[in-house]
């Protein structure tokens, strides 16, 4: 690598390292693995011609990390792929001793988010944590823009309802059918 090339990689690393590790760790549920996946993605970036990658750098990185994470997840059978999305795990309800009121709103939101189906969670994260728009998310996940819009809508609505109902307000029926 030339000096300017290294500088560029360093810059990209500084900018994307944290979002990518966070994203991958959510996909994989394991920090070590997540870091390995991200490292691999950057190693690949070093071998890629810069002008080819740069115009869509963020999506390229997220796509590479995502695909590698999915591969790894499938291989080890420890991750539910996007298509198989109806994972019911409202872990939030498992601890009645915990007083909901005392909990930080942010922590509650995260907990509820983790209760959503995998595909909704991932898309919501890409949108609200990584700042991608629908079109970009579609590119990364290889889903249609319409599909993304639907997943985000349903995800947000479910969150709203769960957050609302937890405040002791009107218990709304959750009719989400995704």
């Amino acid at each position: 690598m030339s000096v300017t090339e290294t500088d560029w990689i360093r810059e990209v690393l500084n900018q994307y390292e944290r979002p990518l590790v966070r994203y991958a760790s959510r996909l994989l549920g394991d920090l070590d693995r997540a870091r390995d996946v991200v490292q691999e993605a950057f190693m690949r970036l070093c071998t890629e011609p810069r002008d080819k990658v740069e115009p869509h750098l963020d999506r390229w990185l997220f796509t590479v990390v995502r695909n590698r994470a999915l591969d790894l997840g499938k291989k080890e059978g420890r991750m539910t792929p996007m298509t198989d999305s109806h994972r019911e795990q409202p872990s939030s309800r498992q601890d009645p001793a915990r007083t909901v009121e005392a909990e930080d709103t942010a922590a509650r939101i995260i907990r509820e988010l983790e209760g959503l189906p995998t595909n909704q969670r991932e898309v919501l994260r890409l949108k609200f944590q990584n700042g991608f728009n629908y079109r970009e998310i579609a590119e990364v996940t290889e889903l249609s823009v319409g599909n993304i819009g639907f997943l985000i809508h349903v995800g947000l609505k479910t969150l709203r309802e769960r957050m609302g109902s937890m405040q002791g307000g009107t218990m709304r029926t959750n009719e989400v059918q995704s």
């Binding site: 590790v21 709103t105 942010a106 988010l113 609200f128 947000l156």
Partner: peptide
Amino acid sequence: AMAAALGEALDSEPKLELS
């Protein structure tokens, strides 16, 4: 409001780094 709250909550998640 939900979107803003979610964005904020996600912002507060631990930052993870490479070694």
